[in-house]
Structure formats: C-alpha cells, structure tokens
Design a protein around this nucleic acid. Structure first.
Ligand code: FES
Ligand code: FES
Lengths: 146, 146
DNA sequence: TTCATATCGTACCAAATTGGTACTGATTGT
DNA sequence: ACAATCAGTACCAATTTGGTACGATATGAA
C-alpha cells in the first residue's frame, strides 16, 4: 500500500528532467539518459500530454516540453493522470462500496485520512519537488497526539 | 496508488469495533456484524495477533481483544502488519532499485514525500481514529507554497 | 469424555492490477 | 523520399490481491 506505480515514477523523472533543463527532449533522449524502457516511457509521456501536463511536437526534431509552468503542475495531477484517480480505500470512493456499509466504524476515519493525504500531494508542485532545499523545510504538523 | 488493501480495511474495522465495545469478540461475531468474509477476517485477525496488536484466546468462549491500549496502536503498525512494510516507490526501499539510480532527479524528492506520508500515518493511533471529533480537528500544515 | 467453539498454520487458486512490449499510423524537418 | 518522433491501441506476462479450504490445536461446558 501507499505505493507509487513505476509509471508514475517514470513520469516524475521525465517531468523533473524537463523542469531542470528547461529544454524540450524526445522520449528516447530521456529514456537513454536515465536508462528507462523507451517504449514504456513513450506511453507515459503520451498520457501526460493528453492530460495537458506536457506539450508535444511531432516529427523530426520533435519532442516534449512542460505543458504548464512548474508551479502549476501538481503531484496529485501527475498521479491521477498516470494511475487514474484512486481512493485510499474502496469505501471512500462513491461507486464501489464495501459490505460493512452504513454501520462501519472505520469508514469515516478512513475517508478523513484519505483527504489529508490527498490534500498533501495536491499541495506539492513540480517546482517544489525539483527544489530539494525547499522540500527539506516542509514539515507536516499534526496538532493532536494521543 | 495510495490504496489501502481490503485486508487492511478489515483490520481497521475489527480494531475499531474492539476499541468501541471494549469487549472481546470472536472473528465470526465481527464478520457477521459487519458482513465481512469470515475466513478472510480470521486470517487478518490472526496476523494482527502475531504482530501483538491483538490478544487472542483459543477454544470455546475464546476470541480477540486489543493487544495494547488504543493510544499505543498506530495506523502505520496496522498497515505494516497486514500488507507488509512497503515504500512509496521501489527506489525508496534499499534492496530494490530503479534503473535510473544515481543520476535520477526524482529519487530524493520521492523519498522525502514518502517520509512525510509515513510520518503522518505513524502519528495516528487507534484512539485518534476512533474519535472522529478529534480527527476532524487535524490539519496538516504545509508551510510552503509555490 | 465428548463435543462444540475458536484460534493457528498453511496452502491454494482466481481475479485484478501492473509491468512491459509490439506494431501501425500520422507528422514534420532535412 | 526519408528518418525521426509522437499517437493510438492492442496485447501478454508477472505480480499482487482477494478470497477459500482444511487439518491441527486448545478450551469450556455438558
Ligand atoms: S465502509 Fe468499507 S471498511 Fe467500512
Ligand atoms: S531512482 Fe527510481 S525513479 Fe529515480
């Protein structure tokens, strides 16, 4: 649980790279650079483009560039685009529902915890991620304790 | 991604129940009460017992009770016990490693984000989870923004 | 003692997800 | 024309997850 898919990993590598170099790059270039499966990365980048996170140019000398400014690319968006929006638990998504349903004592807490985590990853931008120094300073305050 | 397994769900339901009633209960009782697969829940409770989160008593009139005080049962423990300790990404676990390795621009940020989330779930206890009112008041402050 | 109730240990299988590949078509610069 | 490169889609293998089965062991009660 709490695991990023490899595709999401690839997406972050590519986005970080594009953010750092500020130059367009082809899927192959990036794959070679970081020793990733070219075909798989190509699929990932294609998906990111469909979601508007990347801008693409076809043909010779084509490639990918960031589709928005790094400050406007949120980690949550990236994960949603690649893995599809998912809930922390099936019972916190509206369509599916677990058998316990109404009288379940865990449902509401799980939902709240899910919201907190989502809030967190939605608050992180590519710019934040790329800037390690800033990230180091982040602290999550949990103002209650048992 | 970021998904709790159904078994972890079951574990939380059972733990919440035991915390709320303050009475021992058999696997079957709990399964019936919340309409869960009895066999599966039994397996889950067994695992929780092995991890010391529950205390069991065998035979007729046997059953399960909390193995520690609710304030000492951490969400992180529960998840680790059921799903096995996992990392947000394979590259943040020491044994496995992704092909990008050393020159990967995403590795360090992913590791940090992983730590934050882990910190969060490790800070939540069964007592917190059971007490919705307290949980509602929780706010995660992220003191930087883009 | 016998029996019903429970946990314990373990093994197993089916369904879903994820990791990874292949191939064809459409664009575009040289 | 041609090579480079993205777009679309289909496919399969590996892994993980969901879910079941069953024999062994312990315990309380009739
Ligand atoms: S509603 Fe799904 S675990 Fe409670
Ligand atoms: S080291 Fe694994 S994604 Fe970078």
């Amino acid at each position: 649980m709490l695991k990023l898919s490899k595709k999401a990993d690839y997406a972050l590598v590519a986005l970080s790279h594009l953010q750092a170099t500020e130059l367009p790059a082809s899927a192959k270039e990036i794959a070679d650079r970081y020793n990733l499966s070219a075909q798989m990365l190509a699929n990932v980048l294609k998906t990111l483009t469909q979601s508007g996170l990347l801008a693409s140019k076809r043909g010779a000398m084509g490639g990918y560039a960031l589709g928005k400014r790094p400050e406007h690319i949120f980690l949550g968006e990236v994960i949603d685009a690649i893995d599809g929006r998912q809930s922390l638990s099936d019972c916190t998504s509206l369509d599916k529902r677990c058998s316990a349903e109404t009288n379940c004592p865990a449902k509401s807490p799980i939902l709240m915890i899910h919201k907190k985590i989502k809030q967190f990853i939605d608050s992180l931008t590519l710019a934040d991620i790329a800037n390690r120094e800033i990230l180091k300073g982040v602290s999550i305050d949990i103002p209650f304790s048992s």
